[in-house]
Computed example of a mutant assay.
Amino acid sequence: MSDPHVCARCAQKGPTCCQLDPGNEEFCFPLSEMERDRILKELAGDEGAFAQQANTDGFVENLHKLFPGEQQAVDKLFPGTKFHIRLAVDEQGRCRLLGPEGCRLPREARPYYCRLFPFWFAGGKLNVFAASRCLLQREARTRLRMLALVGESDKRLKELYGRLRLAWGLAPRKGLPGIDKCHRKKS
């Protein structure tokens, strides 16, 4: 039985994955232009949801960890002398799109990273980030139960991960067998 409101309940209890410790904004996941445009459309052009962030060494190193073996591609996408766009946060580090009942964006308009979290792919396998703030992890405790609780599947998450990669210009099937088939169907 899925519980699509687990993230909303988490937002009510706080803190959530949608909140950074103040001063750690550089580690907020970047947005692709496609994601930014999709969010802008949903927010009727409100630019206040975004912030420009320098590509710091720590930020790039964090992306190297998320995309192992793709350091050159990451370095090309996020050169140290440039900036990227991320979601804006308030003084407490909370995403400006986080309301008392969760994200103000409909699921399909949210950034791919947000839709994937706390799941991520590494070595072609679905993994779960260790996130002490995640109510989903605290309630479900196992990956399979977590998937069931949010009504997701490995296949759907592979597709989202592939879309995230494509949005950044990374090869869609790198480290993820069969992902190219998902994209051919959806393209």
Rank of each mutant, 00 (worst) to 15 (best):
F50K: 03
Q53S: 08
Q53M: 12
A54S: 07
N55R: 08
N55M: 05
T56R: 09
T56C: 10
G58S: 08
F59G: 05
V60K: 14
V60Y: 15
E61Y: 13
N62L: 12
N62W: 04
N62Q: 10
L63T: 05
F67N: 08
F67T: 09
P68L: 08
P68R: 00
G69F: 12
G69W: 13
G69P: 11
E70K: 12
Q71W: 07
Q72M: 10
Q72F: 07
A73Y: 00
A73S: 07
V74M: 14
D75S: 14
L77N: 08
F78I: 09
F78S: 06
P79F: 15
P79G: 08
P79T: 14
G80F: 04
G80T: 09
K82L: 14
I85T: 09
R86I: 05
L87I: 02
A88I: 12
A88Y: 07
G93Q: 00
R94E: 12
L98A: 03
L98C: 05
P100I: 11
P100D: 01
P100G: 01
E101T: 12
E101A: 09
C103A: 06
C103G: 03
C103R: 05
C103V: 06
R104S: 15
R104I: 15
L105E: 01
L105R: 01
P106M: 13
P106L: 13
E108K: 00
A109R: 00
A109L: 01
Y113P: 04
C114G: 00
C114L: 05
F117I: 04
W120F: 12
A122T: 13
K125A: 14
L126N: 10
V128M: 13
V128D: 08
A130I: 02
A130P: 15
A131H: 06
S132R: 00
S132E: 09
S132P: 15
R133C: 09
R133H: 10
C134P: 03
L135C: 08
L135I: 11
L135R: 10
L136N: 11
R138F: 09
A140L: 07
R143W: 02
L144D: 13
L144P: 00
R145Y: 11
L147F: 06
L147R: 10
